[in-house]
Design a protein around this nucleic acid. Structure first.
Length: 380
DNA sequence: CGCTGCGGGTGGT
DNA sequence: ACCACCCGCAGCG
């Protein structure tokens, strides 16, 4: 019964994101293809029954990352790493933020941490949180499989997520650290003293909290409305607002996303570092200051014929302070069009993206990260 | 503290 | 045999 559906899905994948040869293998095969012609850019949101072959040098693949909240599952097979989806944490009151977004938090991976998480309240309405579990694979959570073989890392996913996307790992981390910083701060009597001192000296500094915040407002976390107003008023880079917004409220799966597109995230800088840049560019796409907004997450820079490190390089080197857009190259770019197999296979993401991920874009990334943090800061 | 991987173990089909 | 899942342990950031 499921078979029909599965196969259909597989077929779709074959034509869509897989290039011909590929799907001839299954993660459980004794031997996996070694004559891989093309490797894929790391996929941030793999969904349905897809398979991908990544370079063994791809950092995200090495870490078996995914923006879905996937936890390790024991399949008693040390050669194949299996992970299953934890779903998404939503607001029990089904509240919406003032700008209409829903709360989609990332379930903690660690069991204990997840239980703790569920005892917390909705950051928006303070209502209870609810874990929406994934049942996309025959009633069970979607599973992802990773297998390292030679110079490739094979990936296969089974099941289609039947729930919205949670925050990405980075987004969740940002939120956590912000929260941590905040509590640490308010708990720090030492600092309070300091502040008081300062206060007495300068006569300024109203509330202790203001200190670390400086540029944020009390409710930025949920802020949308004001925030926007604020932004436009102060005419700050739109990126920031979008950044923080996305940060907290990732879009629902396939929501519209127009997506159908491949939500790929660029590979190098990826996972983690550039949270939802791709989406940013789609929804808020504030053409970066300097930028010609040719960054199309889905279509990739193909438009300008670059799709390559060249554009990436130029971009990152000339616009270091730019918003953290994902590297121009995105999935479709290399895969579908069968373009540029060269840099992937022959020059394993090393000198190019590999390093880029650690070097170039990082500046931009950090930049973004900081901004996100700032915007997010006022967590409550 | 939480993420990640490992693997022993259980129960269901 | 296969699968989902629980649990604790260990390395790491």
């Amino acid at each position: 019964m499921l078979k029909g559906a599965d196969e259909a899905a597989v077929e779709q994948e074959n034509s869509a994101s897989q290039h011909g040869e590929m799907t001839s293998w299954d993660i459980n095969d004794i031997k996996l293809p070694q004559d891989v012609r093309q490797i894929d850019w790391f996929q941030e949101w793999p969904d349905s029954y897809v398979k991908h072959i990544y370079s063994s040098e791809d950092k995200n693949a090495q870490r078996h990352h995914s923006s879905w909240a996937m936890r390790n599952t024991n399949n008693h097979n040390s050669r194949i790493l299996k992970k299953s989806c934890l779903g998404v944490v939503v607001c029990g009151n089904d509240c919406s933020t003032s700008d209409g977004r829903k709360i989609y938090l990332r379930p903690a991976i660690c069991d204990k941490a997840r239980q703790k998480q569920q005892r917390k309240c909705c950051p928006n309405c303070n209502g209870p949180l609810k874990l929406l579990s994934c049942r996309g694979h025959g009633g069970y959570p979607v599973t992802n499989f990773w297998r390292h073989e030679g110079q490739f890392i094979f990936f296969q996913s089974k099941g289609a997520h039947d729930h919205p996307r949670p925050e990405t790992k980075l987004e969740a981390e940002a939120r956590r650290s912000i929260h941590k910083a905040q509590t640490a701060f308010s708990a720090s009597s030492v600092r309070l003293k300091r502040i008081q001192e300062i206060e007495s000296l300068t006569g300024a500094m109203p509330m202790p909290e203001a200190l670390p915040l400086l540029l944020s407002k009390p409710d930025a976390y949920v802020i949308p409305a004001n925030f926007r107003g604020h932004l436009s008023k102060s005419s700050q880079e739109p990126t920031l607002s979008s950044c923080s917004g996305q940060l907290l409220y990732p879009r629902a799966a396939g929501e519209d996303e127009g997506s159908g597109e491949a939500l790929t995230w660029s590979q190098g800088p990826s996972l983690g570092r550039i949270p939802s840049a791709e989406r940013l560019s789609q929804h808020v796409l504030p053409v970066p200051k300097g930028g010609h907004g040719s960054f199309r997450p889905n279509t990739g820079p193909l438009g300008d014929g670059s799709c390559g490190e060249k554009s990436l390089l130029t971009y990152s080197s000339s616009c270091l302070s730019l918003p953290p857009y994902p590297a121009p190259q995105s999935g479709p770019c290399s895969r579908v069009s069968g373009a540029q197999p060269h840099r992937q296979l022959s020059a394993p993401l090393r000198g190019s993206e590999g390093d880029m991920s650690e070097g170039g874009p990082q500046v931009g990334l950090n930049y973004c990260h900081n901004d996100m943090v700032f915007n997010l800061y006022p967590l409550r």
